[in-house]
């Protein structure tokens, strides 16, 4: 069901130059590929670099952040070599993005219609009435029964879920090849979350887009993603298909994340938690960035940072436990797999 590579990111490094000569390595050497028609999820805690990765693709990282290395190729066209003017033709057109906070992501002083029409007019050669027609169609498509009225309403007149729908309508208005959804459901009510994500998937099928889904919710990953990247400390620590992330979990960090999820078919006294917190991006340890929180940390882990290693087809992991075949994984991997919410 997935096709050719659409977006290839190699060696991406986005650093933030802070005061006192501190350098926060928010994204520190990330490689991944998104195929046509695929939903790739990036999972990680706050501060793991997942949002900065997505903003880097759009080249919307604000100062003092800067992309210092790497390539980001959309269909073999390196976006990092483009001028800022050329990038405005990519954003919203080839790659669109929706954000976590629907309450603040729309401009409060312009109508929904105005904001969708301006996107269409920017990228498509349409007259204003034609753009308006298209905007109404889009609003109907994302589930507004009274699309015509909504065109002339302001964001504050809509609920959070409706605003996110309007955001989706705006994002898909120019048939993007890739839609980046940065925690699209996090700020919404639980009942609305599923509706919005279902809508995203429906649009994906209909328009044959790829989706890069940024989330910290493994339940969402299980339900909607094809492949998963687990990020920690600005790096990918595990990359695999969605089934194996739950059934054949490798990295101790991923195991920790899964153990901290409530499970439907097991009654536990306490939920698991990972000790400690993500180290600040300006002072990563020399060795493995997870070593201080890892229950399996070895001397080697504190000495040097392991490489992202391919341990099976479509399964990569950054951990010394799996080097040279590693130990057998039976005693460490999680066995329960039903984590759907």
């Amino acid at each position: 069901m997935t096709g050719n590579p659409l977006l290839e990111v190699t060696g991406l490094k986005t650093y933030f130059y802070l005061e006192d000569n501190l350098v926060a390595r928010a994204v520190d050497g990330v490689d991944f590929t998104i195929n046509e028609g695929e939903t790739l999820a990036i999972v990680g805690e706050s501060g793991s670099g997942k949002s900065i990765t997505s903003l880097s693709i759009m080249q919307l990282v604000n100062r003092p952040g800067k992309i210092i290395e790497g390539t980001i190729s959309l269909e073999d066209d390196d976006l990092l070599k483009k001028s800022s003017k050329q990038m405005t033709k990519i954003r919203g057109n080839e790659i669109a993005m929706i954000f976590q906070e629907p309450m603040t992501a729309l401009n409060p002083v312009y109508t929904i219609g105005n904001q969708i029409i301006e996107t269409i007019k920017k990228h498509k050669n349409l007259s204003k009435p034609a753009a308006r027609e298209r905007a109404i169609e889009l609003l109907k498509l994302v589930g507004f029964p009274r699309a015509k009225e909504v065109m002339d309403e302001y964001p504050h007149q809509l609920s959070g879920g409706m605003r996110q729908r309007a955001m989706i309508a705006m994002a898909i208005s120019c048939d993007p090849k890739l839609l980046i959804a940065d925690e699209p459901s996090t700020a919404l009510d639980v009942t609305i979350q599923a509706q919005v994500l279902d809508l995203l998937m429906e649009m994906k099928e209909r328009l044959n887009m790829s989706i890069l889904l940024i989330t910290h919710d493994l339940g969402v990953v299980a339900e909607y993603a094809d492949r998963v990247l687990v990020m920690y400390g600005g790096q990918i620590v595990e990359e695999t298909e969605v089934e194996s992330i739950f059934e054949d979990t490798k990295h101790p960090y991923t195991i920790g994340l899964l153990n901290s999820l409530p499970s439907l078919d097991k009654d536990v006294e306490r939920l698991g938690a990972i000790k400690g917190s993500v180290p600040p991006a300006h002072s990563f340890p020399k060795g493995c960035r997870f070593a201080d929180r890892c229950p399996h940390a070895m001397d080697q882990c504190r000495e040097s940072n392991p490489e992202l290693l391919s341990i099976a087809p479509n399964h990569k992991v950054r951990c010394y436990l799996y080097e040279q075949g590693g130990r057998s994984n039976g005693n460490r991997t999680r066995t329960t797999s039903k984590t759907k919410i």
Binding site: T88, F99, N107, M167
Partner: peptide, 16 residues
């Protein structure tokens, strides 16, 4: 300039 809707506008490809 630091608000979310400005980021949205930029993400839509609006010119500076």
């Amino acid at each position: 300039l630091g608000s979310d809707y400005i980021r949205t506008a930029k993400a839509k490809g609006m010119s500076e």
